[in-house]
Design a protein around this nucleic acid. Structure first.
Lengths: 194, 194
DNA sequence: AATACAACCGGACTGCGGTCCGTTTAGTCT
DNA sequence: AGACTAAACGGACCGCAGTCCGGTTGTATT
């Protein structure tokens, strides 16, 4: 295989694996919030510069750590079984999308939070663009007619902001069930009949 | 006058004034994003410790700087003339609330952004609780019946998140008019008839 | 195997927000 | 006025994310 973009050097690949392994170990021990780039470099037996060359920033590292689960989530709402995936009624898919997203955020908690402190805000992230597009598509399919469908999709998505969800759960004891109910209520009113 | 809580010492009061003046000067020169606590201390001719004792954190400083305009905004939606203040139909007040909030966020831009990086997130801020309460009240008055009115109010408010609004305006050229239209569309669907 | 070079490495360095604590000072009491 | 004390002061200090650059190493070429 001769890739168009030059292949990654072997020592670089080795260090990337070391770093990801070390990161997961440290996070398992003390949580993602306590993970500092210095400690990660030390624990992986690597210089600090290497950490930043690989991941760009702390948020980039967290994004990389979340990559697999995020890809799995995307695969489920794009191609998976109903009601999340194609086949169900658009409104049902929308409701399922919110519920699953809420569950995802609660499961990965601190990791998602730390990934949110990206340089140019948390809106440039490719994943966010995909969610927006997906919600917009479902709105259209549900017969939604509005002057600003793209902004409406963004509004609905901002409702699922990890910082907000985790704040409600951790500081106010709100359950994921209540969050899901509130989401269902919201999208039902916006997109369809009561 | 003999206040219950001990009066502020004269040197403390003098330094607070100095700091606020210096902060406004520096912000006028280079914008709020470029304001560092070290520079502020130096420009005010004061130790760094003093800055933090007064305002607690950078976010606290920004909040203090916004205090007057925030109080004015609150007075307008609580006691001011319709359609923002009491007297108009609840749905119209809700629509006006969003428009005015959008205008406020765009006017104070970086200041609001910097105030948002508070210690325990941007949800503990007293002002946020008041907005929530206000939106929830207007929803009830509009005949809104839902399993989770408080969460719904929070969802609607999260739509007005400064980071999101400023991102849309600055990176995507969205106008405040379009944002206001989208808000109107959202709350109309949630709270009332089209 | 020797050469050459691009990619990579590491850790010292910077600037930031925030803390700590020994010193100074404003207000009060005698 | 002089003494006392709680409050305020200031700047050295810390841990952090992120940058920089002189030295090193993998890899392709001959």
């Amino acid at each position: 295989m001769t890739p168009v973009t030059a292949a990654e050097r072997s020592d670089a690949a080795r260090n990337r694996e070391r770093l990801l392994l070390a990161a997961r170990e440290l996070i398992e021990q003390s949580g993602a919030a306590a993970l500092t780039m210095d400690r990660l470099a030390e624990h992986a037996g690597v210089g600090k510069g290497t950490v930043f060359r690989r991941f760009g920033s702390r948020a980039g590292l967290m994004l990389t750590l979340l990559n697999d689960s995020e890809a799995a989530f995307q695969a489920r709402f794009l191609f998976g079984p109903p009601p999340l995936g194609p086949g169900a009624a658009p409104l049902d898919r929308l409701i399922a999308f919110g519920s699953e997203r809420i569950a995802y955020v609660l499961e990965y908690g601190d990791l998602v939070l730390a990934a949110g402190n990206a340089p140019r805000g948390r809106f440039e992230v490719p994943a966010a663009a995909l969610w927006n597009q997906h919600v917009e598509m479902l709105l259209r399919e549900a017969g939604f007619d509005s002057p600003e469908p793209w902004l409406m999709a963004g509004s609905l998505n901002s409702t699922l902001d990890p910082e907000r969800l985790l704040h409600l759960v951790r500081e106010h004891g709100v359950t994921s069930e209540r969050l899901a109910i509130s989401w269902r209520d919201l999208v039902t009113r916006v997109a369809g009949r009561a």
